[in-house]
Design a protein around this nucleic acid. Structure first.
Lengths: 175, 175
DNA sequence: TCATTATTCAATAATTTGCTTGAATACTTG
DNA sequence: CAAGTATTCAAGCAAATTATTGAATAATGA
């Protein structure tokens, strides 16, 4: 086989896999699945797309071996397939956060624009210990709730930190 | 701004950057540039595409901030823009090597199919020291010459190793 | 078996992407 | 300034990608 043919095959195969990453909806799905397995309908609801469209994207991700599925009754649960899939998503995200002004700016605004659902936390502040540091966790760096929680906790005199990494990040550290 | 709008903006921005990675030709260009800066024509020649097409791809990569350029006389030299660009490419490559059978198989064949240009090395074997270990280096894991060289050196009783990482990998270790 | 529910499939239209060709720009050197 | 060379631009066409719609599968439970 010609050297050029080898190269063409390899780069085409990698690009094929990479294409699965290059759609906003699929990235959001990957980001969701980094938090644990989900059904098609959950994914559709949380990403605000139709079920058929979510299913379609999931097929693309599955063909590229980025996600896997298991059946449980009438439900099919999807999850990320392996740590390297997550590692690649993380590398792309880090890169974009460093180099894409749109991401930097929006993310900052996103985290400042305090919203709502720290409501329960506010109501149950009394149940939290004051002698310990509280770690606020929230899936991925694109979820704002951890930030809101930390701000609320600080305002009320608690020691609190935001956990920057998702659970898959923590696993990555051990490999 | 609506939470959904935030998310749409962020994922779209990341996907925009990711799209720059998802073309075989552009991946090969990135792989080339991981070895150091190159002119448009060098890139076109080494990737076996036309100059206009290479230029076009380079514009895409530049818009996505994955490469940068500098002018020197009539030449414009392109190079990778930052370690994170390289890190992302490496993550994608690792993922594909692990999960894409086509990549695994082809890469293996590629490295076995000994070719030619270790010719000069063969002719100048006498100039090499026999009391030291020789490290064969070759840009990225997708270049075969290092493998051929190691095989030749072993066959002639030298101590030799293949350096798996490119020079950018080595830099990554220090950050 | 039949109705129900979760998921996938299939067809379509709109948009985007990739490569080619030939012309235009930008810098250098005589 | 003129000629030469490296690079980019612009137009055009073929191919791939996306979301939508409505129908088809597949498992569950009565």
């Amino acid at each position: 086989m010609e050297k050029r043919t080898f190269k063409n095959t390899i780069y085409a195969a990698i690009a094929g896999m990479t294409k699965a990453f290059s759609s906003p909806n699929r990235l959001e799905i990957i980001d969701l699945l980094a938090n644990g397995e989900k059904t098609v309908e959950q994914i559709a609801t949380q990403t605000a797309i139709t079920v058929a469209n979510a299913s379609q994207h999931l097929q693309v991700l599955k063909t590229a071996r980025l996600v896997r599925s298991r059946r449980e009754g009438t439900f099919i649960f999807y999850s990320l397939n392996g740590l390297k899939s997550y590692a690649a998503w993380k590398a792309l995200r880090d890169l974009a956060q460093e180099q894409e002004p749109a991401v930097q700016v929006t993310l900052q605004r996103f985290r400042q624009a305090l919203g709502s659902p720290v409501q329960e936390l506010r109501e149950r502040l009394g149940e939290l210990p004051r002698d310990k540091t509280i770690i606020a966790y929230c899936r991925g760096p694109f979820c704002t709730y951890a930030d809101e929680a930390v701000q609320l906790l600080h305002a009320n005199g608690f020691k609190a930190l935001r956990l920057e990494e998702s659970y898959l990040d923590i696993q990555l550290d051990y490999n």
